[in-house]
Design a protein around this nucleic acid. Structure first.
Lengths: 335, 335
DNA sequence: GCCAATGGCTGAACCGGTTCACTGAAGCGG
DNA sequence: CCGCTTCAGTGAACCGGTTCAGCCATTGGC
């Protein structure tokens, strides 16, 4: 094991300046001390190469400077983007993200949530698999909790960034309807509970409103399984003229299925995705998809949680509006 | 701010069992105490809901249980996969990954490396942008450092997981040669320094050995810029019959360029990538690409760093062999 | 000129564990 | 039965900051 060289402590800086450790502590944070003293202390600290020990500081002050990020499943492209973005946004605010991944298991999610609390993170951002768990309310009592995507049970979390997926669905379905499509298959990924990816409720409501005939198919969000599911639907009787996929990855599966069946996109079947994965613009043909401004979500979530940690009071609930990116995978119905 | 409920301390457990705090500390770690005492302490801890405070433990013991992961740029798909995998592998060993992202800036990389050290991570895994910086040697004196991809300057890091990219290049070029291609364009991403993505040296050596005519093009690893670069090469005189891209994303750019120019893959131009991005299997046509077993790299890097932290001595240098996945984007040369 | 308020700083407790030097008792060989 | 080692456990120092009560010297109001 390498021997960890000792670094200067606050008491050494105190000694060097002839002040008490307390005064040094204050001076370095620019409080309770005269300008002149602060300058002197800063100089001495610089000289000695002093840098406050984050662990000691965390123990004494009760704040670690870390924010937990609990992801439902980091397989998802968009959750990865979210995690990367949140990590950067926190770093820009001099905080660290402690990122953990429940790999799709709701039980594990709760275990990890407790572990993060036990690690004394200052706040928690969670993209919940199971928003209804009572644990969230319990955590929110002692810790700023911000949820992304779904509102948490208990209602006393410190913030929510919700996606207006209803609006996203409406955008996609209206787009397809305007192109003349009436029979539409909707592929939606499986999730433990999905109040805000309202495959059944909202899709059906919109279908009625727009006078569309929809068939909802639940598909694993993996390429292979999405391909199989799409194949079954497109081979079956009464093939839909358009497909709306609640995830770009599922749309890729649909592409693969059309290729296998010798169907063309958008000639035989129009395809609309959801996520605006960067790859989607590069497929043949480029995929029409719903984009949910990940940058905005990231910034909002981080702002909410940091505001609570630093005891400013934030807006508690922010809704992010998605937008439709029309590309070449959707075209007027031919039939 | 929520009031953080106080949790049981080790002294309370000591009180409850009639032992000293020291004895409790030992008992919970199963050392220096009798079986019977350990059982009694565990019961009391359970009863009181006691869980050791990680911050206090870190301060006293000098180990935080965290491993820093310093990524060159988390834009890259494969660096994301690496980060996700390393996060999981560490969690499985009861450690946390502190993931930071230099966003492609070598200066920033060094700043972040120092910050991680100051955060008192127990070890550091780095995928270096600038492997030649003297800082690495300095850090390695006081901290287990494992590098991924490139060996670090100074040579005293505790471990290296190197990719055998030479072998990957050989696999790809031999494959293209066997299909009859002789004029090959090689697209390689820009990086600060790339001893182990030896675009010039090794590609040229292999080209000579295999009697190939290659043109090396440096391209940004973004879709748009790769597309432009590919377009310029494919429009130019003496169009190559095959393209080898040192990143699947660049290959996607090549696909886009061929589409724009009305060329077909693999008919007019064969394309071979590098990364085996999961999307690559789903393109039209599915992309032939070099796969570097990310799972193996992840497991190896984590094992190396944890072994050093826990004072077992590891193999110091591990080479990961890539493999070629032949799909439909490469076909025999027609000319 | 007196009392209160303010500014600048100190000393000591505290955060909650770990670890080290030490002790008493038990075990063991001779 | 004695001296030596081993075992279980204790007490106190320690890790390196923060924070609170308190103190002295000014300053200001009236």
């Amino acid at each position: 094991m390498p021997d960890r060289r000792k670094r200067a402590t606050i008491r050494e800086v105190a000694q060097a300046t002839g002040l008490s450790p307390a005064a040094v502590s204050y001076a370095l944070r620019g409080i309770q001390t005269s300008e002149e003293t602060q300058e002197r202390v800063r100089a001495a600290a610089e000289e000695l190469g002093y840098e406050a020990h984050p662990i000691a500081r965390a123990l004494a002050s009760g704040r670690t400077g870390m924010v937990g990020l609990l992801c439902g499943s980091l397989e998802d492209y968009w959750q990865q983007s979210l995690a990367v973005g949140i990590g950067r946004a926190l770093l820009a605010r001099d905080r660290y993200a402690l990122i953990v991944d429940a790999v799709g298991d709701p039980q594990r999610e709760l275990v990890l949530a407790r572990q993060l609390r036990d690690q004394r993170v200052d706040g928690l951002i969670v993209q919940p698999l199971d928003p209804s768990a009572p644990l969230w309310a319990e955590l929110a009592e002692t810790l700023p909790v911000v949820s992304i995507g779904d509102a948490l049970a208990g209602g006393n979390s410190q913030g929510e960034v919700v996606f207006d997926n209803r609006w996203g669905v409406t955008l996609a379905l209206e787009h397809l309807r305007m192109l003349g499509h009436r029979r539409i298959a909707v592929f939606t990924p499986t999730r433990a509970s999905t109040p805000d990816r309202p495959a059944d409720v909202h899709v059906n409501a919109e279908a009625r409103r727009l006078d569309l005939e929809v068939e909802v198919v639940v598909a694993q969000q993996s390429l292979a399984e999405a391909t199989d599911a799409a194949r079954r639907v497109l081979e079956g009787p009464g093939r839909p003229s358009a497909v709306f996929c609640f995830s770009d990855v599922i749309a890729y599966g649909v592409y693969a299925a059309t290729r296998a069946l010798g169907l063309s996109v958008p000639g035989d079947v129009a395809v609309c995705g959801y996520d605006n994965h960067p790859m989607s613009a590069l497929l043949t043909p480029p995929l029409t998809t719903v984009d949910w401004n990940i940058g905005g979500i990231v910034e909002t979530a981080v702002r909410l949680v940091v505001d609570v940690i630093e005891e400013r009071s934030p807006a508690r609930r922010v809704v992010c509006e998605p937008a439709l990116r029309v590309r070449e995978s959707t075209a007027p119905a031919t039939a």
